[in-house]
Design a protein around this nucleic acid. Structure first.
Lengths: 353, 353
DNA sequence: CAATTCTTGGCAACCGGTTGACAATCGGCT
DNA sequence: AGCCGATTGTCAACCGGTTGCCAAGAATTG
């Protein structure tokens, strides 16, 4: 006759308890197995595939887990499954307020879906961006690229490895979230035309920026429709200082209304023109883009074409997580609507005195 | 006679190749072992303890790793060592620009030290913050809490598990990075006194904010020194709208200069007073705190006490990573200096007309 | 009641790397 | 030549969880 094995005797001991710094150990499934009197594989099943064990065993295991304050070790789980419930978000410039709401939107949706967001920036460099992306790919389940600087082929190559979603750019074969700039631009140009403007300048963004090209195309099309002249002005960099630096070019252009690639350019431009004694909007109307934080701090407050950046962030996150959970559709393009936010920096052109 | 074992025959096969989505497999140390003709443990030692193998073997392994485009699997490494080269940063409100330079500073130092930053926000809730912190503790090596809302005991409990650094608050027994508000406040009050002001209002921040209490103490002390009257005004929330809402209380206080808990309050206050016809700074001087993004967008641009937030972020990261690498000193308090940034929103009090 | 099918818990290999213990080899010394 | 200490590569257990396969027991069917 053999003695019946007690659960404690029979269960493999599993990992030696690793002591946390306070001397209290973190429980593992081997500890739960011991307390519940089942095999560790049963514990694993109960915790990750609840229907695969009987209700009685399920309850035993859940009670033991609660009693031991069990917390799954994400590395141990990631090793066999490859899944970590994290995703990466790479933004071009972490201090550019355009990205504030994108990050906020992404973080909000991440929390709702029980995912962790890992943030990195590319510092406007395609090389840095690709390096950061490849590094993230080793640990994250997927990736969101906001206003990426790398080229389409590189993005598609990344997407072959793990799901990728792109914000503010359209890449064939990759899911994207793109503001429909034409709606907002049309509203802005229509508003300027109604206010008597006949010549509009567009202050462009970085030469390699996909979105800058789209915005310029939108401005041209809208001006053509409204029978306004459109002139393009290059800017050094898409910053407040960049806006200051194009003030002279804007004045020389003879335009009475300016649309800029982004709000920072608009703010810098406004500051520089006002410093030169130009009255905004009486002598020149200024319209920015994106409606970033601080856009309404200026005097007059900035009229701008609002991108729903929070929606971009949360929409991109939803696309990504749906893909990761097998619900999503590859190569989706989610368009979000832009809209004109009329503030004080654009208005009727007053007759010259 | 026995046939000599070829390296290929002798080496354990190790993990079956896991195919990446593009059909190309990611190399493991077993693959390198096969190519280099050594044991996988030798490969591991060569890659993580280079001195422990001979120079000849080291080169063999490094060459094989390069040939196979080997990338260490962070989960596999984390499991036996418990180290992931990541740390968490929890901020109170991700859209509050105060945090963006903190995040930027932290991210910059993280990249330099080859660490990954994981971001989360507490949405101003102590409960949410503690939950996020506990969740991060399972995977991150350490944690930075920026303007935490949980209490001191909870912070110390977290610090018993893994290294924690706190920004904008002093917690006994925990390393902290704290702006020395008194220097900046003294400069601000001195400047106001020199401009003829006699009564200063302080618009406070959230009641549970440690930093708000410190700033009010600093204002009181500086006013006492300069023989100015100091009056405290409660604000509902530390936002632009919160600043608007205290405009009446500020006017009713009779103060001719205002110091606010943060720039957002100052900006809202300025906008509301200006909308009421009050001329800034002729009729009232306004001084904010932190020098956030957008503080110089206003008209006049905001005078503010600048916290070197980027320095806070990078300093906290350095403290944390030094602790993690055994170089740091527990319970360090790093003080960073604040300084007055004089812009147009404060000036000489003009005589009433 | 026996045969068959289904349910459910256990076994053990595995994920990819780390590392203590051990043994083989080498160089220096007597 | 033998001994001893140092060097260096190998063995194999381990980190904490997952899961294919198998077997035992329960339920169903003829």
């Amino acid at each position: 006759m053999t003695e019946p094995k007690t659960p404690e005797a029979a269960a493999p001991t599993g990992p030696a308890r690793k002591r946390a710094r306070d001397g209290k150990s973190n429980a593992t499934i081997y500890d739960i197995a011991r307390v519940a009197g089942v095999n560790p594989s049963t514990v694993s099943r109960a915790l990750s595939k609840p229907g695969r064990v009987s209700a009685k065993t399920q309850k035993l295991i859940e009670d033991a887990a609660a009693e031991l304050n069990y917390q799954v070790n994400p590395f141990a789980r990631a090793l066999p499954t490859g899944r970590t419930n994290t995703f990466g978000l790479i933004v071009a410039d972490i201090t550019n307020p355009t990205f504030f709401d994108i990050i906020r939107g992404a973080e909000t949706t991440a929390t709702l879906r029980d995912y962790t967001l890992v943030l990195a920036e590319s510092a406007e460099s395609a090389v840095t961006e690709l390096t950061a992306a490849r590094r993230m790919m080793t640990t994250a389940d997927g990736l969101i690229l906001a206003s990426p600087r790398m080229d389409d082929d590189e993005i598609r190559a990344l997407a072959r490895d793990k799901p990728v979603v792109v914000i503010n750019r359209e890449v064939d074969g990759v899911p994207c979230v793109v503001p429909d700039v034409n709606k907002g631009i049309s509203e802005a140009v229509r508003s300027l035309a109604a206010n008597g403007h006949r010549k509009v300048a567009f202050v462009a963004g970085p030469p390699q920026s996909w979105m800058s090209a789209r915005r310029w195309e939108g401005v041209q099309a809208a001006c053509e429709w409204s029978r306004l002249d459109a002139v393009r002005i290059e800017s050094g960099k898409p910053t407040v200082d960049g806006g200051r630096q194009v003030a002279r070019d804007v004045r020389d252009s003879g335009a009475t209304a300016v649309l800029t690639y982004n709000d920072l350019l608009a703010i810098g431009l406004m500051q520089e023109l006002q410093a030169a004694g130009v009255v905004v909007p009486d002598q020149i109307s200024i319209v920015g883009f994106d409606d970033i934080f601080g856009a309404d701090f200026t005097t007059p407050p900035l009229t701008t074409v609002r991108s729903p950046l929070g929606e971009c962030g949360s929409g991109a996150t939803t696309l990504l997580l749906d893909l990761l959970n097998g619900d999503g559709e590859p190569a989706t393009v989610l368009r979000v609507e832009t809209e004109l936010v009329l503030r004080g920096s654009s208005g009727r052109l007053l007759p010259a005195h």
